[in-house]
Amino acid sequence: MTTLLAVLALTIVPPPIPAPAKERPAQVPPVQAPSDLVPVPSTPASPIAIVAVQPFTIAQPYRHRFRKDGTEFTSGHLLVLRADAGFVQPRQVAEPVLCIGSQTAERLWSDPAKGLIVAIVPAWTERTDDGAERPGDPSVDLVWFAAPELPERVDAAWIAAERARAEAALSEGRLSTPSTREIVRYASLKVTLQDALIARASELAPDPAAR
């Protein structure tokens, strides 16, 4: 048995394995273009323009996920904004929160290349100088990007503080209002289900690829 195995076995003694030399990258990687990710702009800041607005009512209550309290609403506005890329590009760290009046807006779609955002804002009320209340209106009320934060962590107190900061900036000339409001103002929309509202919002996105 032993002899047989010896005959069958390889008779060439392999050479020793040399110890490896320390490896270093063998090639210089190609130069990559500088980052396209625009730094987070300072806030408060205004969008460049409000491109379109459409009031709506909805029978099926819509939960507002862009606030901590997650309240439900049955009326509000769809709107399309144009803004600097820094406000439109999605990023992983905190993004400036889009606020309108005393509300946060839900970002439905964004198109960084065109600087467009399609959003839903629940109805809110504004107090007039004489103390009366009137419905909030994106056509006339303050629209701004507030400090970077996760919308789901934002509450009424936070919005109020950010609004005060924005109004101070406005009065001091550090914040401008959108240059254009409502290039298009659509007739009020009345829908029953959320799907219909979302579908309509998607039609407002000028570029299907952004939907």
């Binding site: 210089v28 990687p29 190609p30 130069v31 990559q32 273009a33 500088p34 980052s35 396209d36 990710l37």
Partner: peptide, 11 residues
């Protein structure tokens, strides 16, 4: 999006 933030030539 391209978010490369390293030194040139290392991407």
């Amino acid at each position: 999006i391209n978010d490369f933030a390293g030194p040139s030539g290392t991407a």
